[in-house]
Nucleic acid binder design. Structure first.
Lengths: 206, 206
DNA sequence: TAGATTGTTAATCGATTAACAATC
DNA sequence: TAGATTGTTAATCGATTAACAATC
């Protein structure tokens, strides 16, 4: 009994399920079960079944889930049956690593444009792309209909950059700057802050 | 009324609070309130007060929180009043970015050793450190009493590397490989998977 | 068929919110 | 004092788990 609105916390687990299914598929496995996924992911089998039930019925009683089928369904649900063009802002060490990162393409994302405001960086080549001046951001994003952007600039510039992205029509922002940015409610934001994760863990140490 | 055991989800928010307080302190602000933090972070003021109440009483009725004091208390609770030496495994693009990342030091972490198993990488210099052979990992970690490690190797190597880390006495692992690793229960693991965050957001797009 | 596993319901568990006495 | 804000309690809300009928 698939409903139309799934809790955000459930949506956040779908990429984890998709990741596991993709790995199993690559290993040639064809069938799995909520129990096997549970063991691999450390998430209870009941929760996995409940999570999936928000979106439809994908398994067979007594058998489990056909991996290729469930993987395709999750891709469809997450809207990554397509490839999303992504704009990257910030061409420092992190930006360079992200521009070279091979892990985006198989997950449905391709960095198609890199921006920085430092004039000595503008014009450089990275992974087959030219680094563009940030002032060109709105035009490029509109022209190429880019909806997703990654922010890899210093914290001090993050809010200003976020404003430019939103005004240019960006709808999803992955923010690597360790600072909260404020955007309109209809714009998605996710944060990546490695130091915060480390602090979360050191709480339990010693 | 501070208790001894706080929910993990609460612990996970403390670094966010600490981050905000640190920024305010840098801006010269001396006092804040749960209401102001709420507005900055998009977390309800009641939740902020409740979260903090797990660890003690840090505020003054009618006034709010002294920023420097609360910041120091959160550092103490998260065990980052000290600096943790960190071992980084994997010297690719991502490893390079992490080794150069200036954001760890002010948060209580310092990458003191970089490891890779590729012989053409071993011996290179990065941010004042020499890239060491992974085979030296156990000895270095024991000698320097390193408890925290960052994994920035390909997925295919992540589980094997994790095994080496655990055997060497590592107690907290920040894993950038987009794969679940299995470790003993007493070892902390956190994951960073940018593609998963992007997929979480594209669910809501279109 | 017998065995296994789904999808779903109901119960439990835990987290968030609302409200307010205490008090700075 | 009057105004503001904490820390905490109780209520609400939501997520997870347990259990099992359905069924492959």
């Amino acid at each position: 009994m698939a409903t139309n609105e799934a809790p955000d916390i459930v949506v956040g687990r779908l990429p984890i399920y998709l990741r596991a299914l993709t790995i199993m598929a690559e290993e040639g496995q064809e069938i799995t079960s909520s129990q096997e996924l549970s063991k691999k992911l450390g998430i209870s089998s009941a929760q996995i079944r409940k999570d999936l039930s928000h979106f439809g019925e994908f398994g067979k009683q007594g058998t489990g889930y056909e991996i290729a089928y469930l993987r395709d369904q999750l891709k469809r649900i997450l809207h990554v049956e397509r490839t999303w063009p992504v704009a990257l802002v910030g061409y420092g060490d992190l930006g360079t690593a992200l521009a070279n990162y091979a892990g985006f393409a198989p997950k449905g994302f391709e960095i198609v444009a890199v921006f920085d405001s430092a004039q000595d960086k503008v014009g450089q080549q990275i992974a087959g792309k030219e680094v563009l001046d940030l002032t060109e951001f709105p035009a490029v994003v509109r022209e190429r209909d880019i909806k997703v952007a990654i922010v890899a600039v210093p914290s001090s510039a993050a809010q200003e950059v976020a404003g430019i992205l939103v005004e240019s029509g960006i709808k999803a922002i992955l923010n690597y700057a360790p600072i909260n940015i404020s955007v309109p409610a209809e714009v998605q934001v996710q944060y990546i802050d490695p130091a915060a994760h480390l602090q979360h863990m050191t709480y339990y140490l010693e």
